[in-house]
């Protein structure tokens, strides 16, 4: 897959950073506003996919990227599970208990462990969507050859 014209490349470069920031905003405010890990993760994946579409798959070494995204996906979901298991060892010793202090309602740092879950679920979803996209691109390239 070849890249698109220079106009598209420049606009994609400019826009993708903003999209990425917006995704981070959605994830970190997951416990306060609508959205959260899943929605924000999908937006972050969108930022990457936009760049891949604009610059074409030749420009990047996609196979290595696919391995990296698949690894970070497994790591993120494993950390989510471990955050839940960690609750078995402290406090009330109950799976998925919210062990951190709850804080003030409406503050960015509040709601105990829920923002942490949101962040890692965001990484997991972004990595998973990128992995699926790269798998489809790589499959198409291989069919062409």
């Amino acid at each position: 897959m070849k890249g698109m014209s220079i106009i598209v490349k420049k606009v994609a470069q400019l826009i993708s950073g903003l999209i990425f920031l917006y995704g981070i905003y959605i994830i970190t405010h997951g416990h306060l506003t609508p959205g959260g890990g899943f929605a924000g993760g999908a937006i972050i994946a969108g930022a990457y996919i936009l760049n891949i579409l604009a610059f074409g798959s030749d420009a990047m070494n996609l196979k290595n990227k696919e391995q990296g995204s698949s690894l970070s996906e497994s790591l993120a979901i494993f950390i989510v599970l471990m955050l839940a298991v960690f609750a078995l060892f402290i406090g009330s010793k109950i799976f998925f208990a919210n062990y951190l202090p709850k804080g003030q309602l409406g503050e960015i740092i509040s709601a105990g462990a829920i923002p942490l879950y949101n962040i890692f679920i965001g990484i997991e979803v972004a990595a998973a969507i990128i992995t699926i996209f790269l798998a489809l691109v790589i499959f198409k390239e291989e069919v062409k050859k």
Partner: peptide, 22 residues
């Protein structure tokens, strides 16, 4: 307290295999 282990242990194993198996 043993009940959730039936879900946690195989789930964690399946992710660990994807991370460390490589």
């Amino acid at each position: 307290s043993l009940i959730p282990l039936f879900v946690i242990v195989p789930l964690a194993t399946s992710f660990l295999i994807m991370i460390l198996g490589k």
